[in-house]
Design a protein around this nucleic acid. Structure first.
Lengths: 153, 153
DNA sequence: TAAACTGTATTCATTATAATTACATTAATC
DNA sequence: GATTAATGTAATTATAATGAATACAGTTTA
């Protein structure tokens, strides 16, 4: 999984924390520690998926366009990092034995990986921009981490 | 997750499929489509974790040293790819606002990632070299994929 | 003692990732 | 309108991660 997911979530949380405000790429880049052009690229992806609204021109920038509570991390994961757990290894065409045993192994491992992706998405679907934001806002208190309890269900 | 996990599992399945046989790095490398030196490096890791036994010298190679049924993929994952889902992004020391909001976001995301790692390991702990091997051997039949059903539990 | 292995470090090549630059386009404001 | 400040996007460059290849010391068998 590359860092696009992280940056996307981070920016969305910032937007959700001040829904009326318009944030530009430079400000977001400063908070997320990356380059404005990269922020724009990722935000552009989020816009095409209708999570945010963009305003071009002077005074422009980004605003949230979705309900933080229903915007799940799984959704964002799919946009940014789909199949990050994919099996990365070449085909088995040159198996000389004819028994094609290693192809069988490959299939089995592909099922394992796709199952892994499945449980990961299921876990991420239980968290949303809203839930993370609430977790943040309650941080000064003594709450138990929501992520921890979710993963131990 | 890099491909060490895949190669390790693949090699272990091969060893488990012929427990009496000694496999050398060149043969394994041919089946797994990588370089013998890389196989040796990974097998060396598995040996240090007592999953296999090594025989050096002429006629040497690798043999399984564990019960395939209790050798879970989670265990192998931990050896090869631990924290593959770790948050990869720099610290927040230069936050000028003083509110340290983005540090809070960082902590929240770290919890999310560590929870993700947790569910992934939990999923992998339900599969073993033995279960994969059995899945392979029953492949000619019409069995439902074990991985699929596990991930949908 | 020679041959065939593993163990391991090092170097090189490739690929993936991210930063940077550049510039067209858009919109607000003077 | 002209200027300014923003996004959208492509292209280039730099850096980091990954894997392949090489080399050679150590080990065991015959």
């Amino acid at each position: 999984m590359n860092s696009e997911f992280t940056i996307a979530v981070h920016c969305l949380i910032i937007l959700a924390g001040a829904p009326e405000q318009i944030w530009n790429s430079e400000t977001l880049a400063g908070k997320v520690h990356t380059h404005p052009a990269r922020v724009r690229k990722i935000m552009s992806l989020l816009r095409r998926n209708c999570l945010i609204r963009t305003k071009e021109g002077l005074g422009g920038g980004y605003r949230l366009a979705c309900d933080p509570e229903t915007c799940s991390l799984a959704e964002i994961y799919r946009m940014t990092s789909c199949s990050a757990l994919k099996l990365n290894w070449c085909s088995d065409s040159d198996d000389k034995t004819g028994k094609a045993e290693s192809s069988g192994i490959r299939l089995a491992l592909e099922r394992t990986f796709s199952g892994a992706e499945h449980v990961l998405e299921k876990y991420l679907s239980k968290q949303s921009i809203g839930s993370l934001l609430r977790e943040l806002q309650g941080e000064s208190g003594t709450e138990i981490s929501a992520a921890k309890s979710l993963s131990e269900k």
